[in-house]
């Protein structure tokens, strides 16, 4: 009946986040500034302990279950179910049919390989299951690999917030990219 799976792609699975097991691995990811900044698990970007990550993620999962205005998935490799990152919808505005999305992959080498595939799964979920009219994601000129991956999927630059992020002794622009559902339907209609 449906041509595509929402939680499986060629190389990846979107699975429930397991705070007991995944938080230990994710705590290691937070040593990468890009991961910690993107995750916003803490107000200042710094490495977190497994205890801290578990606490934050448990709070988030509670919110996901109770309010249904946020979603969190663990990204795992199909071949060995290794946990490599998360797809988050930190805020879904049902009244506006608009969602924010974050795709975070812990290891730089895996990010280069799997970020587009994971982000596409996130987009498919947002448009084909939640029926959002628009999805947005924030990144920055300091994260060219993420920025180019999102652009490569068809997301457009809509907002450039000047000098909004301080990193490595200078200010950088925060960039908001987005995609309307109409673009998704045009670009991915053949799948």
């Amino acid at each position: 009946m449906f041509k595509t799976q929402l939680f499986e792609s060629q190389s990846l699975l979107l699975e429930p986040y397991d705070p007991d097991k995944d938080a230990v691995v994710e705590a290691g990811f937070t040593r990468r500034w890009h991961y910690t900044w993107g995750s916003m698990l803490y107000s200042e970007a710094h490495p977190l302990s497994a205890f801290q990550v578990k606490k934050k993620r448990e709070e988030q999962l509670k919110r996901c279950a109770e309010s249904r205005d946020a979603f969190l998935f663990a990204i795992r490799l199909r071949e060995n179910t290794k946990f490599i990152g998360v797809v988050e919808l930190p805020w879904v505005s049902w009244s506006n049919r608009m969602a924010w999305m974050k795709v975070l992959i812990g290891e730089e080498s895996l990010e280069a390989m799997y970020l587009p595939e994971a982000a596409k799964m996130g987009l498919r979920y947002v448009f084909e299951e939640l029926d959002m009219a628009l999805v947005a994601s924030s990144t920055g000129e300091f994260q060219p690999q993420i920025f180019h991956a999102l652009q490569g999927l068809g997301m457009r630059v809509y907002v450039r917030q000047r000098l909004m992020v301080y990193y490595q002794n200078r200010y950088w622009d925060r960039i908001i990219v987005g995609m309307p559902q109409s673009d998704w339907q045009i670009i991915y209609s053949e799948e």
């Binding site: 506006n96 608009m98 009219a133 628009l134 947005a136 630059v157 809509y158 907002v159 450039r160 917030q161 000047r162 908001i176 987005g178 309307p180």
Partner: peptide, 8 residues
């Protein structure tokens, strides 16, 4: 600094 079109 930009706008999200038809977001609301």
């Amino acid at each position: 600094e930009g706008r999200l079109p038809s977001a609301l």
